[in-house]
């Protein structure tokens, strides 16, 4: 009785060992031929929590990407340090194209500027494709005395620091937007950062702050409870046609979160090209585009070179603002 049980366990152990060996073999053979890329599942790392906008986009992209690439795409989440955790891991990952990570602007530009050691530098993240952006807008409560952006700026000019503005996080897109506004108008606002978009919107809706910097989706969801004074797009935003842009109101600023993907430094150009083509196919899919636009995203189809140039342009723009306002 006892011996038979023990030998049963031994047998099980042998079987398990055999199964354990299989993935090792598969890995080894897959590695040898990078020309066939991709031959196995690709990890698509989201540097933020599940349920956020980067995650929602990736979930939508997944089936189309799998079709374009012919392999599984596995979405993994690695939130932490405002995304820096995932990016610092990406620069250490093997440059074989099997790890791609969401690449969010302005995050990847600001973090290395304001932190002594962010774990990565902006140019270490090799850009692949930029597929969407969410414009950022400025709003006040529906019963606020301010009706236009100019009203708000005039008041802030006379009462420096008196207007409180809610937004998500320090050194983030929302924070940058308020810094840009201060820089361009020479005014001072009190920015009150929350731990995320949801708490920041809640804080504003509860009347704890007078104004709100928020992504377009949050503005859309609560449009009837607020007056949206300006939006950070270059032209009027399709989903909010009555809201003027900052540019229209005489301020040379755009504000938004741009989302794309990046691969580790040293990734071969052929692999980048394969991924670029796959993302291009997804972004050309009308079904995908209309799904994304319904959620309030602006769709882009920016390839690797264009994306890299865009990052350079944004970097110098952001550096000026941060330097002038003494943030760095």
């Amino acid at each position: 009785m006892l011996t038979s049980r023990v030998s049963g366990i031994r047998l099980l152990a042998v079987i398990l060992l055999a199964i354990l060996a299989v993935p090792g073999v598969v890995f080894a053979s897959g590695e040898a031929e990078s020309a066939d890329y991709p031959t196995r599942a690709i990890s698509y790392v989201i540097p933020f929590n599940p349920g956020g906008q980067s995650d929602v986009t990736a979930q939508y992209q997944k089936p189309y990407l799998e079709e374009a690439l012919g392999v599984d795409v596995v979405i993994r989440h690695q939130p932490g340090a405002g995304g820096a955790l995932a990016w610092s891991n990406l620069v250490k990952a093997r440059p074989d194209g099997y790890t791609i990570t969401g690449n969010n602007i302005p995050h990847i530009i600001i973090q290395p500027m304001v932190r002594d050691n962010a774990g990565y530098t902006t140019d270490q993240l090799k850009p692949v494709y930029l597929f969407q952006s969410t414009p950022i807008g400025l709003a006040v409560a529906a019963d606020s005395p301010f009706d236009t952006l100019q009203d708000l700026i005039d008041y802030a000019a006379d009462h420096p620091g008196e207007i409180t503005v809610s937004g998500s996080g320090t050194h983030t897109g929302h924070h940058l937007a308020i810094l840009q506004l201060q820089y361009l108008t020479g005014t001072e606002f009190t920015y009150i950062p929350a731990t995320g978009a949801a708490p920041s919107v809640a804080s504003f809706l509860g009347g704890h702050t007078q104004a709100l910097m928020a992504n377009s989706n949050d503005l859309l969801a609560h449009a009837d409870e607020m007056k949206i004074l300006a939006i950070g797009t270059t032209e009027r935003f399709r989903a909010l046609p009555d809201v003027p842009t900052f540019v229209e109101q005489g301020l040379d600023m755009t504000a938004g979160i741009d989302r794309g993907v990046a691969v580790p430094p040293e990734t071969p150009d052929e692999i980048v090209a394969t991924l670029e083509a796959a993302f291009d196919e997804v972004s050309a899919n009308q079904e995908f585009v209309s799904e994304m636009e319904d959620l309030g995203f602006v769709i882009h189809s920016m390839g690797a070179d264009e994306f890299a140039a865009y990052i350079d342009r944004k970097s110098s723009e952001i550096e000026t603002v941060l330097r002038e306002l003494g943030e760095i």
Binding site: N49, P50, G51, G52, D55, V56, Q59, Y60, A198, P199, V201, A202, L205, D218, A221, H222, D294, L295
Partner: peptide, 27 residues
């Protein structure tokens, strides 16, 4: 608050929020 205001009250609710969006339902 997630269903009525679109403001999730806890991290798991935030993920459910994402699932609702994927089903085309806005809180």
């Amino acid at each position: 608050p997630m269903l009525t205001l679109g403001v999730p009250g806890a991290p798991p609710a935030a993920v459910l929020f994402g699932a609702l969006l994927l089903q085309g339902m806005r809180p």
